[in-house]
Write a protein that binds this DNA or RNA. Structure first.
Lengths: 188, 188
DNA sequence: GTCTATATACAGATAGAC
DNA sequence: GTCTATCTGTATATAGAC
């Protein structure tokens, strides 16, 4: 681990993705990284500060992965499959999307964090809508790109949620089949 | 309110649907119903007991609404629209589905509650799959009923989640459009 | 940067009087 | 059934020494 701040942040993110913001405590964070809770407050004065950093860095990492998908050419189906892979990675670690988890806990977030959260979803859906528009010839659906983007984002966040309760990956798999049903493997 | 137990249960359900299990405390529950927290423990000895009752009664009420949809004949599109209405009602109250919320908080549930939660989703998806199968002539989708049921359930739970953050009902609306795109209004 | 020590608040839960 | 009173644990957060 590069430094203590990064170590704390990485652990905090994993805890939120697995168990939620309420299971994240400065004490636990301290114990599991070998410092005292007051030291955690040195890096992140208040819990809202830590939360905001988590959302920001998660959004940034997500954006980079989207850029990586953009970088190499491919069909719509291939690109959307790459998008689903981002969620699959979380699922296989028994995690939710950080922002999906925080969306459920929105009543505990301050205004700043709510804005960052909203930004994450806007970013993801704008990316999806743009991809769908760029490959419109490969879309076998009457839904306009923005609507289809909303369907996919809801579906993927919901699939992560439900697969932890029930179904052993079946919900994410069903989302893949939905995509295959409207995205042809045709020329880019 | 019929009796204190019912009053407590009703309030508890609303708190969980709006803010989650962690925001539900025996103290708050007591204050807002005019008793002391020890009285709440009289009705629900432990928090897990209250949680289990909430899930059970929510599942039961949900099943009754599904039966009401079954009761009056109609096209697939009409029935699925009635299903979405159940989620729409929660959304307009700024609530999530109780079980969607608890799915996010699964790490805080005991085994009994997890089983009840799983039962809720199984029930909902089996109903959807049955409806899709009964109206298979009206389904314009290559996905088998079970898969389509999983897609819809994920999508609706996710839509409730995302609409609270971002979009003012757009995600639920997009789910309705998805349904309209594959469910013909054809004869029942 | 990390520590000790502490303030303050609130959580779930129980004992026992009435 | 409802109360008072209390136990115990944990949370966020801060002051100030080193």
């Amino acid at each position: 681990m590069a430094d203590k701040r990064t170590e704390l942040q990485t652990l905090a993110q994993a805890i939120v993705q697995r168990s939620g913001l309420h299971e994240l405590s400065f004490r636990q964070l301290a114990e599991r990284t070998g410092v005292k809770s007051s030291s955690v407050h040195y890096y992140f004065p208040e819990k809202h500060d830590l939360t905001a950093v988590l959302i920001s860095s998660y959004s940034e990492a997500f954006a980079q992965r989207l850029a990586a998908i953009d970088a190499q050419p491919g069909s719509l189906r291939r690109k959307l499959s790459g998008f689903v892979d981002l969620f699959e990675q979380a699922a296989q670690d028994d995690k939710l999307c950080l922002c999906g988890m925080l969306a459920a806990e929105i009543s505990s977030l301050d205004e700043r964090c709510r804005g960052l959260l909203s930004g994450f979803f806007r970013q993801a859906e704008l990316w999806l809508a743009r991809i769908l528009e760029q490959h419109q010839g490969e879309v076998l659906s009457p839904l306009p790109p923005g609507r289809l983007a909303a369907v996919l984002m809801s579906g993927l966040e919901g699939a992560l949620l439900l697969d932890r309760v029930h179904g052993a990956g079946a919900h994410l798999q069903a989302q893949r089949q939905l995509i295959d049903s409207f995205a042809t493997g045709a020329p880019s």
